[in-house]
Design a protein around this nucleic acid. Structure first.
Lengths: 330, 330
DNA sequence: CTGAAAGCGCTTACAG
DNA sequence: CTGAAAGCGCTTACAG
């Protein structure tokens, strides 16, 4: 059954293999009667065209490559949800390429290109700016349509779907400043995701406009290590009036430590997350967030990519989805 | 560059394409000098074999298919982490197939088979028992190696990597019973993941052995709806001494509601999660859990699959990884 | 509307 | 150790 080929179908339907192929790819070019006959045989034999052979002959694999640093992060998983839903709708298969920073990035990308994907979605990078440029060059040299998904790179003109993270973070920082807060801390991760750099920029801009020094903390995404860091930080007598974090889970971890040390949230310290994940709903107090529609970013980027792959006109190669602030208890 | 072919390499190295192919696949069969020459040219031209063509000619795609219900769930993402790490090590590419329950499952699987993967990992199903059997039959008919990853199906003898969830849940229930609890509730999700069914079985068995009626709650994974459900449940005056949930996030949501209604955790109600995710560390009180090593399940299942794909002997086709109970504050 | 034939870029017996 | 040739299962001009 797995090895029913187009020849078997052609034989059983008493037509040539070219006709069978046409029934599948250009049905309108086939006489309705023969078409029906062929379709019947296809169903009877349970025939499904070998995607590999089709890929080789047509030089299209109807497969997109997803290049990313780490699958297991919640934000990545949500992106993938949006991506896979749309990919399925357009009948594209998905190939996953993970890329740790220690890998030879160039080799990894070449491998991805060798897999003959029709398009690439680059997401959630952990790359240095230079490496990022190189990766983009490599893909563009190979003439493969590329969309940056929840990833921002301004040095080149690359199709992008994301949030205007700079503005979003600028807005929320402004808001806190307007409430009279001055000691507003900003927690970054150690890894340099491009989008987090832009969040930091927005924060920094708002602080500087207010004549304040930016107060940036680098912290791990690992709860057991960042909780120690935050406890020491708070016990160290640093004055803190507000805390913004690139990740919700880090914000929640900070909030937990603050509360255990006797601070009141939000009275003493306001806490804000920049994602709006499930963590924000399950923490106590619940977490105020800038909501970033990650699923949508995935879905829209995949849809944009299909347009490039099918050579459709694209009105705008950069899409910045709207975001909103969700006020909760923190 | 993307279109350097084996012919270009052969031409530049002044050998036949067969020799180039051998250099890549059976280097020991090639004279060291010619081998070096060819390798040099390969590097110079930046040649990477077209994976599609190779797949067609060799009838091996060095690709594995991951079939699952939902990418975006945290548990799935963690599994994928383990899977991709090992896949990379063995040089397998990964193709993703998501399958919602509304889809025509048979068609979806046929598509997956048509993609010519060398092996399939079936994970985190949401299938009815019958559909599950059909999917397994389909894959086995197509002679494709299959491993169930964090999924259990006892009706057939299929290679499996998971936890003995029945025993794990039995153990934790026993423990609560030994502490004198009688009104031990068990929260299931609405979707029927096979592993959750086994968790329920373990719980039920322990309760029945103690001469108690099992108290099973079906709840949504969505925080805003399950929190309403739990609040009504608790306000309804139901006596609850302990609460076990298949998912940590559901346990945390229940705990939040209980605390807000004035119950003391763990004094009045003990709460236990059956995953040990980040939620368990970030909740207050922190959540006592049965720890299930999801990353490892992914990694081990992928490794097992490589053995089947390369026709290696497999000592045991079912692997049940150890679990442990992590006592925390709840 | 349909078929015969070339070709996609590789691998793999088969000779030599 | 190396090359010529067939073949993997399709698609796609090209004739008719």
């Amino acid at each position: 059954m797995a090895n029913t080929t187009i020849y078997d179908v052609a034989g059983a339907a008493k037509v040539s293999l070219a006709t069978v192929s046409r029934v599948m790819n250009n049905p309108e070019k086939v006489n309705p009667e023969t078409r029906e006959k062929v379709l019947r045989v296809i169903k009877e034999l349970g025939y499904h065209p070998n995607a590999i052979a089709r890929g080789l002959a047509s030089r299209k694999s109807t497969t997109v490559g997803i290049v990313m640093a780490d699958v297991s992060r919640a934000a990545t998983a949500a992106l993938l949800g949006g991506i896979t839903d749309i990919a399925k709708k357009y009948d594209y298969a998905i190939k996953l390429f993970t890329m740790d920073p220690e890998d030879d990035i160039k080799e990894a990308m070449r491998k991805c290109v060798a897999e003959q994907v029709d398009g690439i979605l680059l997401l959630n990078d952990e790359l240095e700016l230079d490496d990022m440029g190189m990766v983009i060059d490599l893909i563009q040299d190979a003439q493969i349509p590329l969309v940056l998904c929840n990833t921002i790179y301004n040095e080149k003109d690359v199709p992008t779907v994301a949030i205007d993270y700079t503005k979003a973070t600028y807005d929320i920082t402004k808001k806190l400043l307007a409430e009279g807060k001055k000691y507003i801390y900003f927690a970054q991760t150690v890894h340099k995701y491009s989008i987090n750099q832009f969040k930091a920029e927005g924060y920094t801009k708002a602080m500087e406009e207010a004549g304040l020094d930016p107060l940036i903390l680098k912290s791990s995404g690992d709860v057991s290590s960042n909780s120690v860091q935050f406890r020491e930080f708070l016990e160290g007598g640093n004055k803190v009036e507000a805390f913004i974090s690139v990740r919700d889970s880090i914000a929640v971890s900070f909030m937990n430590q603050a509360i255990e040390l006797g601070f009141k949230v939000p009275e003493d310290i306001k806490v804000v997350g920049l994602q709006n994940t499930k963590y924000a709903l399950l923490s106590r107090p619940t977490l105020t967030c800038v909501d970033t529609p990650v699923y949508d970013i995935g879905a829209v980027s995949m849809r944009l990519l299909t347009k490039y792959m099918t050579h459709k006109d694209v009105a705008d190669n950069k899409v910045f989805l709207p975001y909103r602030i969700v006020e909760r208890q923190s």
